[in-house]
Design a protein around this nucleic acid. Structure first.
Lengths: 216, 216
DNA sequence: CGGCATCCATTTTGATACTG
DNA sequence: CAGTATCAAAATGGATGCCG
């Protein structure tokens, strides 16, 4: 009944009291790119088990990091979305992702699952600040049935779920090819030239996009 | 025997595979301010249980985030210290701490333990960038038997264990008073004026220190 | 003592089955 | 679709024992 707590007067420990349990931060990660339904969360978190997801969501709701909302008609489905305090975890998740990109990610292995949204968040976590400076463009990524976009503005990047408003570039790729990009095995420009992905839009935007998200 | 993994090709999940288990990030937090002995770690992590700490340290060593080292004579004791990849988690821990300062810390409660080192790390996590600009000073904090220092240089702050080399200011306080400061209940200058802490050093440095670490 | 390893009662989790 | 119910397996925490 009583949640486990570190009982430390420490900002780090207090945060982990709220989001430190298994799966919790990954649920937040899923919601950073936009609201999701229960079954979409289940789909993105293989292995979580339905009752544990429900318990975590209940906890995050009671901690006011997540809100249950009815989507406006005609959708009408109930979705989970981040509140202000939940969104405020984005910098922490990005810092964690940067560490993983540098020290732990490596090459994909056959037993690892992959979702395009994770790569979009990685793009937001680690982009080339020099290349992104003074750019105001939006790139749309269509990967299998999933659509994401990355907005580059004011030297920052936002990776979000759903189509872009007026994209300067539309990248279409298989999940396989997109994962290769996330693994840093090629730049977007190279993959487009080789026909492994298709890029529709201005050639300039393609060059920008490739430079901003080139992995070193 | 086999460690639990999310098995996701995702930078965030991969990081949590390494440091996401209970206590792990708090062990790293303890080592951010400097190397520590096994028993000091136990002391700073009430409730962990000796075998779990040993297991976590073994894991962190095998993951190359932590290294076991013999301290040079005359100390000669064995300590645990962060490797390069371990130190590289500092930004993530600071981001987590900033969230906790903003959304979860609140006032200390009687059941919560407190260690001065945690407050020093919080100072590093959330300081006033404007006030820290163009300052090159070091402040020493003596709290009970513990000594820490904060180095302000190049607009950044480093909170570390042990005495400062040539401190511009030496703050002496009880753990109780230092905790009050960490809770944001007074500025350092106010607490010094009220005699709840003592400050030795230049009046200018005291003003700087107070401004840099004032909590809004 | 410091630095663990072992044993055991409690919690947490993962997987599956089931319901409104 | 959005969960709840159930139950076995794993992780945790506490106490205690061992060893240089």
């Amino acid at each position: 009944m009583s949640r486990r707590s570190y009982s430390q007067f420490c900002a780090t420990a207090k945060t982990l009291d709220v989001v430190g349990e298994r799966w919790t931060l990954l649920i937040i990660r899923e919601l950073v790119t936009g609201p999701k339904r229960y079954k979409d969360l289940l789909e993105s978190l293989p292995g979580i088990g339905t009752s544990l997801l429900a318990a975590r969501l209940r906890h995050l709701e009671s901690a006011a990091l997540v809100r249950r909302t009815e989507l406006p008609p005609p959708a009408g489905s109930t979705v989970y979305e981040l509140t202000e305090s939940g969104r405020d975890l984005e910098p922490a998740i990005m810092a964690i992702a940067r560490w993983g990109l540098k020290w732990a990610l490596g090459e994909p292995t056959p037993d690892e699952v992959f979702r395009p949204g994770w790569a979009v968040l990685a793009m937001q976590a680690a982009y080339d600040e020099r290349a992104a400076a003074n750019i105001d463009e939006t790139y749309e990524f269509r990967v299998g049935d999933d659509v994401f976009h990355a907005r580059v503005q004011d030297g920052a990047v936002q990776g979000r779920h759903g189509p872009a408003h007026e994209p300067d570039l539309v990248i279409t790729a298989t999940a396989e090819a997109f994962m290769q990009l996330a693994a840093g095995q090629a730049t977007i420009e190279q993959a487009a030239k080789q026909g492994r992905i298709t890029a529709a839009g201005s050639r300039i935007a393609l060059r920008h996009c490739s430079a901003i998200f080139k992995r070193p």
